[in-house]
Amino acid sequence: MKTIIVPMATCAAFALQAMATAHAEDGYDAPDDWPSPMAEHHTWAATFDRLEYAFPDKGDETLVWDFEAWYGGDINRVYLKSEGENIQGDNEDAEFESLDLLYSRLIADFWELQGGIGYQGGIASDDHPERYFGVIGLEGVAPYRIETELALRVSDEGDVSASLEAEHDVRLTQRLFLQPRTELVVAGSDVEEFGVGEGLNSIRAGLRLRYEITRKFAPYIGGYWEKRYGDTADLARAQGEPTEDTAVVAGVRLLF
């Protein structure tokens, strides 16, 4: 996995650098050895939007993360995103549901078009099957301030899938937020090894109540309901997994 990620990251970083420094200075009087009057700096951010422990009604207790980091300027950025879980008590290591390295470009005030590669599988272990993806995504804020993330994936086996995540903050007080969140996954073909069936895979809807002690540290509690559909549900049943479940979650949102 590392063998792919590293060169990709290097390329993306170079692309970013090239674009950031390519600006003409014609017409100015300043000698070459003077600094630019206004230097622009690249910046970065890293967020655990969700870092939570789930207590499902039927399934096993699970540690879940939803991480996102970026580096770059206003227009061009490199993203590293990861969602994954560690099911407790299954004697298996944690699994990346996705680990994406993406180049991102601001294409409208509120929207970034993203593209790159993704990975699904175990973290430094062979406990889980692995596959790679090409990823194209759209991330941004829809009208009514709905944080939206759309991703289209094509796996190294040619399997196509798409996911949509949307969340919205309702401000109860200056620090207390209620956050409805939905997640929807569809796939173009059956991939039994990964429990993926053709068509609508699953819908998950959650509600979290978050208290921002600071902007950087915000614990929350909440719950979600999840249902699997069609072939995906059949695959789950065959594995002895529930097709519909609810869970209580407790976690923290972190901003670095």
Binding site: A45, L172, R175, L255
Partner: peptide, 21 residues
């Protein structure tokens, strides 16, 4: 520099007078 980064990363980062319910 951190203030600038906060402004770049979180819209309304310093605003604790937003509209509520």
């Amino acid at each position: 520099a951190r203030v600038m980064r906060n402004l770049k990363t979180g819209e309304g980062y310093y605003n604790y007078q937003e509209r509520t319910i």
